[in-house]
Design a protein around this nucleic acid. Structure first.
Length: 720
DNA sequence: GCATCGGATTTTTTT
DNA sequence: AATCCGATGC
């Protein structure tokens, strides 16, 4: 295999550079991921490094999976034993392995956002702190920030009264997490960094093991991540990091692009390699990107260049309001598709998740399918959280928040009063709530039975029996079997089915979770739960569906699309109003815009709307100040935002739908004669397929049950 | 113990 | 606009 094939000289240099610290400064589209994968292949192949001695960290699981696949293609086989994953997943694995050194045990659960906020809330209540004055989210934000900066509760600076409160809550928060045998996202990094810092034996073990450490998106590492990398590389000093300060967009969660400077200071012998050639975008797009990022301070200019030609000019368009913005997008896509573009070529990017709704409505209205990136949308749902909470309690009985969530869902007549009695009992006996419940499962034989009123005792006993049953059977069951048993035991389907459409939707979501469990059925319950806790938004992206993608600018990092819309380019939205009074935050907003621009390969649409609705009120807006930095000559018809030009608001509503747009823009994926397999009905033959209301409807003849009409997007058909 | 209603509050971005 | 919270009534 010629490993050097297809790489430019700088990329080759990065791939084959000798040992020691290496810093690759890579502009957008310069083939960062390619370089990382090729370097891994180079180390594993020609240099003969064992997979076991390599670590590569990425920011999303998707990126990790992509690298894995490319690596397999380069090597001809899948390397076994390679440490490749996100920071969080890698740390979680390490902590489980080293749990004997930690104040928690190996089957800890990972608390998500909701759990974290819920915990803070409980503490605020417990300590009689006014939630109005100290918003749970804000308090948690400060705690999270402290952890990212390696500040422990004891070291938390107490300058103001607010600090005093945060510090008190922080301390209790850590206690409560430990007592639930739980870690939050930040803990995964913090504890790992602490372990490596404080325990020389463990540090040596891993520092010896990892002969090479490779890091993607280095500009978005925080202090905890930096410290742990430093320790991991302390023995061999072969640390290879790739980053771009201009794409640093996670300052608010502790990321510190100054880590790049820190790296150069800590490793003065670091070799620096610059990747400037862009293989993604047309030159017009790169010129716009450079012009937009230029006003930022403290940056070294990168001359982005492309050999793909100038390409088409950009479109800067004002619409009347958000509704028309959606209509403009949908019309433009319909027109483009009618002229031969693929629906999947398009992406729509926005600053805040709330903006997606109106865009979705426009797509729904036009019966156009779309893909929405965002894991939270699924995993944050009540029914999903409920079911996961059951699994979590069985996996880790110490998880009190989950226990409290499920103990009365569906309702079992265990209300506030009974709960507080149970709590009192548990704290008097110094046992966990779950332990008390498991004992109560013995009915009248339980030593705790008489501590409750007869009705309360009965309710607790029956729940205790359920819990005891699951806990006893779980070890011999797969996640899927356990899930099914729980769903059946609590009759969750009838609980959800309240006769409304929404109830059915909720049950569908549970079935979707069940499908996910099927995928991970060969893994342990702990792996399954961890997997779910650490999914990133990008991980939910379905590459196969040929439909436009809707996503936030943050979620767009690392991705590319032939045609890109960046919408809501108004002062207050991008830059976001919350950033106005902070110079650094404003620079980050600009970088966010830059990241969005550089996602586009061929065509870029910049949209702003004269009126924007927030909190239910529609208000006039000003175009984003960043639009003024887009050079006149790069924009079709000139940049309308520049002084002296009349605005040209289109009223899309009044457009006659373009004739071409009425052509169905979906092409059937199936055609008559194809052999397919359905998960329940087995093999069959496609008799016909057509597009109806934006859905592909396939007629399939199954041997056993005959003719069925199926929606291609829902039935999980598999081509044979 | 549970359902309903009205009012307040919310939106930045995510592993 | 949508969700969350607390108070009220059953």
């Amino acid at each position: 295999m010629d490993q050097l094939s297809g790489l430019n000289p700088q990329q080759q240099q990065a791939m084959t550079v000798g040992g020691g610290p290496v810093l690759v400064l890579a502009g957008p589209g310069s083939g960062k991921t390619r370089v990382l994968t090729h370097r891994l292949a180079y180390l594993l192949g020609p240099l003969g490094v064992k997979p076991y001695n390599l670590m590569a960290v990425t920011f999303t699981n998707k990126a990790a999976r992509q690298m894995e696949a490319q690596l397999e293609a380069l090597l001809g086989h899948a390397p076994r034993g390679l440490t490749l994953g996100t920071f969080h997943a890698t740390c979680a694995r390490l902590l489980r392995r080293e749990a004997q050194h930690m104040p928690f045990d190996a089957n800890f659960v990972i608390f998500d956002d909701d759990d974290q906020r819920g915990l803070v809330k409980r503490i605020l209540k417990e300590q009689n702190i006014d939630e109005k004055m100290h918003r749970p989210q804000a308090v948690h934000g400060r705690i999270s920030r402290a952890k990212n900066e390696l500040l422990l509760p004891a070291d938390y600076p107490k300058i103001s009264y607010r600090d005093e409160v945060v510090s008190r809550v922080y301390e209790r928060y850590q206690q409560m997490l430990l007592s639930a045998n739980a870690l939050d996202f930040d803990d995964l990094l913090l504890y790992t960094a602490q372990l490596l810092e404080g325990n020389p034996e463990v540090r040596e073990k891993y520092a010896r093991r990892y002969e090479h450490v490779l890091v993607d998106e280095f500009q978005d590492t925080n202090q905890a991540q930096y410290l742990l990398l430093k320790h991991l590389a302390s023995r061999h000093r072969n640390i290879f990091v790739v980053g771009d300060t201009d794409q640093s967009i996670y300052r608010w969660r502790g990321a510190d692009y100054r880590n790049i400077q820190r790296f150069e200071a800590d490793f003065p012998d670091a070799q620096v390699i610059l990747l400037e050639q862009n293989y993604r975008s047309r030159q017009n797009i790169l010129d716009a990107a450079m012009a937009v990022i230029k006003p930022n301070t403290h940056r070294t200019h990168k001359q982005l260049f492309s050999e793909l030609g100038k390409g088409e000019k950009l479109t800067v368009q004002e619409t009347f309001d958000g509704r028309e913005e959606g209509a403009f997008i949908v019309n433009t896509i319909a027109l483009g598709v009618a002229k031969g573009a693929e629906p999947g070529d398009y992406a729509v990017m926005y600053r805040t998740n709330a903006q997606s709704r109106q865009i979705e409505e426009a797509f729904l209205h036009a019966s156009l399918p779309y893909k929405l990136v965002g894991a939270q949308r699924f995993y944050g749902r009540r029914e999903i959280k409920d079911v996961l909470a059951y699994l979590r309690v069985v996996h880790n009985p110490a998880d009190e928040p989950s226990l409290l969530r499920v103990i009365n869902t569906p309702t079992r007549k265990i209300g506030a009063k009974t709960l507080s009695a149970l709590r009192t009992l548990a704290s008097n006996e110094k046992i966990a709530l779950s332990a008390a419940l498991l004992d109560l499962a013995n009915g009248e034989g339980s030593q705790y039975y008489d501590a409750f009123s007869p009705a309360a005792a009965r309710a607790l006993v029956s729940f205790g029996k359920l819990l005891a049953g699951w806990t006893a059977e779980a070890p011999g069951m797969s996640s899927l079997q356990l899930l099914d048993k729980i769903l059946a035991d609590i009759d969750y389907q009838s609980y959800l089915d309240d006769g409304t459409e929404e109830g059915l939707d909720r049950w569908d979501n549970v079935l979707e979770l069940r499908r996910l469990a099927t995928e991970y059925d060969d893994q342990t319950l702990g792996d399954f739960l961890e997997r779910i806790a650490l999914v990133s938004d990008q991980d939910t992206l379905d590459d196969k569906a040929n439909a436009p993608t809707l996503l936030t600018l943050h979620a767009a990092k690392g991705l590319e699309f032939p045609q890109v819309f960046i919408v809501g380019l108004e002062d207050g939205t991008l830059p976001h109003a919350r950033s106005f009074d902070d110079v650094e935050a404003m620079e980050e907003e600009r970088r966010l815009f830059y990241v969005g621009i550089t996602r586009a390969k061929n065509r870029l649409y910049l949209l702003h709307s004269a009126n924007r609705r927030t909190f239910g009120y529609s208000e006039p807006t000003d175009p984003s100040r960043y639009l003024e930095d887009v050079p006149d000559k790069l924009v079709e018809g000139g940049n309308p935002v520049l002084a002296g030009r009349p605005t040209r608001t289109v009223r899309v509503d009044q457009w006659a739908p373009p004739a071409e747009a009425s052509v169905p823009i979906l092409q059937p994926d199936y055609q008559a004669g194809m052999q397919v397999r359905h998960p329940t009905w087995g093999e069959g033959m496609v008799l016909n397929s057509k597009i109806e209301d934006g859905e592909e409807i396939v007629d399939v003849f199954f041997e056993d049950i005959g003719l069925k009409k199926l929606a291609a997007s829902l039935a999980r058909l598999e081509l044979i």
